[in-house]
Design a protein around this nucleic acid. Structure first.
Lengths: 164, 164
DNA sequence: GTCAGTGCAAACTTTTTGCAACTAC
DNA sequence: GTAGTTGCAAAAAGTTTGCACTGAC
């Protein structure tokens, strides 16, 4: 099972990371890692909290989630994004590089891939800077909102749908 | 004076925007626009608040700053970023397109330009999506932190300087 | 004169922190 | 045994909201 392989691998990476840094290997940390690697796409702390509770039946405090995520980011197993109000995260091991397209009206985030773009970014020469990762956010209006706008064009109202 | 020209132009754009949207032309709104266009680089709401108070001697509430910034973003005169904890903004009219290089250790943000990159991004075909603007954030370790790390490599400590 | 806009304070949301209890080592 | 971790609750930080007052139109 491909998915299980990835989980095993990241568990091993995390174990090595914890050992190297002199951190403890607590059950909470591995449960969090496991849950994160069963999520496709983005998630925030709250949805992770709920998912662990409901689907994995594992109760951790939000404080521990925040603490552990910092370690996972440092271990390069998780990437942090900041689109809307709350921080969004995603697993990063064994994932294809992708970019983000964000609708400024409804807040919907779509991923897309583009090799040329990827190459251009990675080939960028940066002086005195050790590149670790990057995020490209493209903002605009998605097709759905675009159509919705055309319908109610007469009114001068700004429609601000709540993100999230 | 080049800078004054820009200020006059954006004031005119904003005036037209407000008229078109049926919003009022209040002194607060123009004072905020003027202050923003006298700032080079990024700022957050709090520093804008303080700057208006101290340097322009103009007192506005934070609520008004938030309200007005939304209008300015909609009028395409300001761009919003989300690096650290609080939202960062910057003027966008008449500014060269640039990208951001962020040090994950000290949080320092540096701007850089790269035409090839810019072209690659702008040429990206997005289906059913009306591009408005984009942000490329490149994360890594800056030269300064890199050197600092080498010095204290023996200790296994993670140095987490507070961003902001 | 009217209603959009403002200031203020309270509310809300997300994240951080202090501390007692717990447990990996 | 003991220091690193956890959970909890309180605090902090950033942003939004409700409401009375003000002023642009």
């Amino acid at each position: 099972m491909e998915n299980q392989n990835v989980k095993d691998t990241v568990k091993q990476i995390f174990t090595e990371y914890l050992t190297a840094k002199g951190h403890r290997k607590t059950p909470e940390r591995f449960a969090i890692l496991d849950t994160i690697y069963s999520i496709d796409g983005h998630f925030d702390i709250d949805s992770l909290y709920l998912r662990m509770m409901e689907q994995q039946n594992f109760r951790v405090s939000r404080a521990t989630l925040y603490n552990t995520i910092i370690l996972l980011i440092d271990a390069r197993l998780v990437i942090k994004h900041q689109f809307g109000n709350s921080s969004q995260y995603e697993k990063s091991y064994n994932r294809e590089t992708h970019h983000h397209q964000i609708c400024t009206q409804c807040g919907k985030v779509t991923e897309f891939q583009n090799e040329e773009l990827q190459r251009a970014i990675e080939n960028t020469k940066l002086s005195r800077f050790q590149l670790s990762h990057y995020s490209l956010y493209i903002y605009g209006v998605c097709g759905k909102c675009e159509r919705a706008n055309k319908k109610k064009k007469k009114t001068g109202n700004i429609t601000h749908k709540k993100e999230k």
